[in-house]
């Protein structure tokens, strides 16, 4: 079967799946439902989850009746490098310090672009690192270490 409106079809699937997931979690983890006068923590999310599931089904049905564009391919390269760079930054900043982490972040994220000129990227990284240390650590006094912990001790 060929999908007539893939974008809407998959949106519907997404809403249905997430709605179901929330409703199932309420049931599996046994969040109390309570009564309508004294609603338990499970009441509102369960109802919302079911409503969203139904809405997802409605969108799927609608997608069968309408024409729409196909879902374009995922651009894995920028996706991986951008989000990867962010994750690495989050994990290393406490140990590596702000300066080094920023340079790593800039380097890795730059791989996600189309051109990569090492010299240009390095210069940008250093400028950003110096600027950030001045503004955030000295100016706004955010509690970031500047240098890697093995240097500053």
């Amino acid at each position: 079967m060929k999908l007539k409106n893939p974008k809407d079809f998959w949106s519907g699937v997404m809403f249905m799946a997430i709605g179901l997931a929330f409703a199932i979690v309420v049931k599996v983890f046994e969040y109390p439902m309570g009564t309508s006068s004294r609603m338990g923590p499970g009441y509102f999310p369960f109802v919302l989850g079911i409503v969203m599931t139904l809405l997802g089904v409605a969108i799927i049905i609608e997608s069968m009746a309408t024409q729409g564009e196909p879902v374009s391919k995922f651009a894995w390269r920028p996706l991986a490098f951008i989000l990867g760079a962010v994750v690495i930054f989050g994990l290393i900043v406490k140990v590596a310090g702000m300066a080094a982490s920023i340079i790593v972040l800039v380097l890795v994220s730059a791989f996600g672009g189309h051109e990569f000129k090492l010299k240009e990227v390095l210069i940008a990284g250093v400028i950003l690192a110096v600027f950030s240390v001045l503004v955030f650590v000295y100016g706004l006094k955010l509690p970031f270490p500047i240098w890697p912990s093995f240097i500053s001790g």
Binding site: V86, L105, S109, A124, L128
Partner: peptide, 8 residues
Amino acid sequence: PAILVFCC
């Protein structure tokens, strides 16, 4: 990359 730095 600069936007990413400030966000992070």
